[in-house]
């Protein structure tokens, strides 16, 4: 069995939804693939895996720690979706300072009651800038799209399960 782990960092889980959009083809993979850490299994810690799929970019220190764990444990690491590849929508906060972002979200925004910036020690520390995953670790393959189409996951996994290099056809490459 091939062991596969997935996670969503600074993402919206849309890539995971698209993964599930493979519908009945997903069942075909289930027979050959065992899921390790993933929102699908609710397993919280990662073991040694053959393939890791990372959705989302890096916006806080927890994202960074998870990404490094995935890199250490996965033989093949795949950046999945626009946010993992270029920071995506969360990276639009890079146009503003951290103070501006926090003030807008928790102090000055419309409809805020009891304005205060959260400071619970449980909350991971935000990074100054949101950045794509390839800035922090080596990435083996990339699956662009917001989200990548289900067919792209299929092409990727079929190739990797056969031990081949995935070749995404032109019609499955899009950035939105």
């Amino acid at each position: 069995m091939i062991r596969l782990a997935t996670c969503s960092l600074a993402g919206c889980f849309g890539c995971h939804m698209s993964f599930l959009d493979m519908d009945e083809k997903f069942l075909g993979f289930v027979e050959r693939v065992e899921f390790d850490r993933s929102p699908f299994t609710d397993i919280k810690s990662i073991g040694k895996c053959d393939i890791g799929l990372v959705e989302g970019g890096l916006c806080n220190e927890e994202n960074l720690a998870v990404l490094k764990e995935f890199r250490e444990n996965c033989a093949i690491l795949v950046a999945v979706g626009a946010c993992a590849i270029n920071g995506g929508i969360p990276a639009m906060r890079n146009h503003f300072s951290m103070d501006e972002c926090l003030a807008e979200a928790y102090l000055d925004g419309i409809g805020i009651e009891n304005p205060q910036i959260p400071s619970d020690p449980e909350l991971p520390v935000l990074l100054q800038k949101v950045c794509p995953v390839h800035e922090a670790v080596r990435i083996d393959y990339f699956l662009p799209g917001c989200p990548p189409p289900a067919g792209a996951f299929e092409v990727l996994l079929e190739a990797l399960l056969k031990g081949e290099k995935p070749e995404l056809p032109r019609k499955l490459i899009h950035y939105d």
């Binding site: 995506g88 929508i89 390839h134 393959y141 990339f142 917001c146 032109r170 490459i173 939105d176």
Partner: peptide, 24 residues
């Protein structure tokens, strides 16, 4: 950020990148 750009789908930069198979 293509998902947030009105031009997406009709953008020549985006198309050129698709044509060249740019994934990252």
């Amino acid at each position: 950020y293509c998902p947030a750009c009105e031009k997406s789908g009709s953008c020549r930069l985006q198309k050129a990148a698709y044509d060249e198979g740019m994934l990252d």
